[in-house]
Every structure is written in structure tokens, then in C-alpha cells.
């Protein structure tokens, strides 16, 4: 049996899980809520606004009208979606951690692994297939959420905002952003899979990685911990998901996207090798 068939089976198993579906649906609903709020707040026009003030004149108080710069609160997908993807990129790494943790931990929990191993006893092969499936499944889930957010933002922009700037070049750039942020989500899920294969429990894996996020924040706040925070897997994954590393204050000094991606990949490789080794050796009940 080919390895691809095994990956396809694992991907199907991932996609069929109710926890995965509910999490994706929840993500889509949150995006809907955000866009409804944006729709409500969006101004139709960018007309100048004025305000009336009372000032003390030589002959007593006089009303004065002051013209302000126009506050343009219109939704402009051509300008705002890039920022949206950045914000989503970080959230989706956390989302990936949930997806990856629950996938393999559920198999330990339900002991489905015991039956699976009767069909595929090569554990490293099975682990790699599961890892690939988790990466693909989480990345596709993330991409669906981002694209959904983009479509809704486009709709809101068309209804009560502006779609200026949306052209082929813009689409190409955003597609690249989607691939980057989705991949960050997928890598987060792979890390979580490795931790969960050792911990066997979703809550432990999520606790470890979310705890690492908090720990990274703490380390970044002290002088001696800053170098550690910079190369922390959660920091590099967040940096990868955010994509814009021009701000030296952000992401504890990560400077280039290539660097963030490289360090993320090294981390994913290291924890996956440890996870696979553990998975291969442990007794399955």
C-alpha cells in the first residue's frame, strides 16, 4: 500500500473529526461576527466632519464650528485585508495547536491506535502520515478561514466601503500571505501533534504550548531571556504567521521572515523526530 494512501486516510480521519469541524465552524462564525461589526461601523462616505464649540470672545461666548480631517471608517479590503491576515496569522497558530493536540491525543484516548496498528504496524511511517495529514488539514482549515474573512471583507467593502486597490497584483500578494499564515498554522499543529504523542492528552499538549507562549512573553521582558524568547518556537511561528518583521520591537528581535521560517522548521523537525521516536517505542494499549 502506498504511503500516499495512508496520508489520505489520515487526512480523511482528521477532516471527519467533529472537534475539527466545530473548531473550523467556530472560526468562520467569529469572522462573520467581526465583519458584521465592521459593516455596522463602516461609513458610507468620507465627507468632512465639523464640530461646534463655544469659545470666549471679546463680547462674551461665541459659537465656533471647527472642521476636522475626515475620519474615514470605511472598510477598504484593498488596504485592510493584509492587516487582517497578519492578525489572523497569530491566532491561527494557536488554532493549529488545538487542532494538532486533539487529533492524536484523541486516538490515544479512544485507543483507536490499537486497531490502526494492526493495519499499519510501521509506527514511524504511521506517525509521519499523521503528521503530514495534520499539517495539510490544519493549513487548509486556516486557509478556509482566511479566505472566508477576505470574501466577507470584500462584500462589506463593496456594500459600504471601497474595493479600491483590489487587482491581480493585490490578489497575488494576498495569496502569498494566505500560504504563509496557513503554513504557520500547519506547523503549529505539527508541533502540537508531537507534544501530544508524548503527553497522550490534549489538555497537556495545549497547556505546554500555550504555557510556552506565556513563557516566551516573560523571557522577552527580561534582558537575559530575550535571546531565548527570540528563538522560542512560539515566537518564530507567530512571526511567521504575522509576516511583517520590520518592527525590531516586535517578536523579540526577529528580523527576517526567512529567519522566522527557518527557525520554525528546525523546531518542527526536532520535536517531530522526538515525537516519532517516542511513538515508535511506547507501549500501545
Amino acid at each position: 500500500m502506498t504511503f500516499l494512501a495512508l496520508v489520505a486516510t489520515e487526512l480523511r480521519r482528521f477532516e471527519l473529526r467533529r472537534a475539527v469541524r466545530w473548531m473550523v465552524v467556530l472560526g468562520l462564525l467569529i469572522v462573520v461576527v467581526v465583519n458584521v461589526v465592521q459593516l455596522a461601523r463602516s461609513e458610507v462616505s468620507a465627507a468632512s466632519a465639523t464640530s461646534e464649540h463655544i469659545v470666549q470672545g471679546p463680547n462674551g461666548p461665541v459659537p465656533v464650528r471647527i472642521a476636522h480631517d475626515a475620519e474615514d471608517r470605511r472598510v477598504r479590503v484593498g488596504r485592510t485585508f493584509e492587516q487582517t491576515i497578519r492578525g489572523l496569522g497569530i491566532g491561527l497558530v494557536m488554532f493549529g495547536v488545538l487542532l494538532g493536540s486533539t487529533f492524536i491525543a484523541a486516538e490515544f484516548g479512544a485507543s483507536g491506535l490499537s486497531t490502526q496498528l494492526i493495519f499499519e504496524p510501521r509506527r514511524v511511517r504511521l506517525y509521519v502520515a499523521k503528521t503530514l495529514a495534520v499539517f495539510i488539514g490544519a493549513a487548509v482549515s486556516a486557509a478556509i478561514i482566511i479566505v472566508w474573512a477576505g470574501l466577507l471583507q470584500l462584500l462589506v467593502s463593496a456594500l459600504r466601503g471601497s474595493t479600491a486597490g483590489v487587482d491581480a497584483g493585490w490578489l497575488g500578494e494576498r495569496a502569498t500571505d494566505v500560504v504563509r499564515a496557513s503554513s504557520a498554522c500547519g506547523l503549529g499543529a505539527v508541533c502540537a501533534t508531537a507534544v501530544a504523542s508524548i503527553a497522550r492528552r490534549t489538555v497537556v499538549a495545549v497547556g505546554v504550548l500555550y504555557g510556552l507562549t506565556a513563557g516566551t512573553g516573560f523571557l522577552g521582558g527580561v534582558t537575559w531571556g530575550e535571546p531565548l524568547a527570540r528563538v522560542s518556537p512560539m515566537n518564530t511561528l507567530f512571526g511567521m504567521g504575522y509576516g511583517d518583521l520590520n518592527d525590531p520591537e516586535g517578536f523579540f528581535g526577529l528580523r527576517t521572515l526567512t529567519g522566522a521560517v527557518t527557525i520554525s522548521l528546525v523546531w518542527v523537525l526536532v520535536v517531530s523526530v522526538i515525537g516519532a521516536w517516542w511513538f515508535e517505542r511506547r507501549e500501545i494499549r
Binding site: 500500500m1 486516510t9 467533529r18 491506535l113 490499537s114 490502526q116 494492526i118 493495519f119
Partner: peptide
């Protein structure tokens, strides 16, 4: 392994999936 069928203690399956789906997933992997 394709010549051996087994279950150890209680057979384990994904409780949220139907019997058919559980078996189809096992079948498709081989």
C-alpha cells in the same frame, strides 16, 4: 500484517464515527 487480524482487549474504534466509516478508514489505509 495483511495475513493477520487481531484485536486486543476491547476492540477500539472512534466512537464518533459510524461502524461503516471506522471500517472504511481502516480499509482505505490498506
Amino acid at each position: 500484517i495483511d495475513q493477520i487480524g487481531a484485536f486486543v482487549e476491547a476492540p477500539s474504534f472512534f466512537p464518533g464515527f459510524s461502524a461503516r466509516r471506522n471500517l472504511e478508514l481502516l480499509a482505505s489505509s490498506r
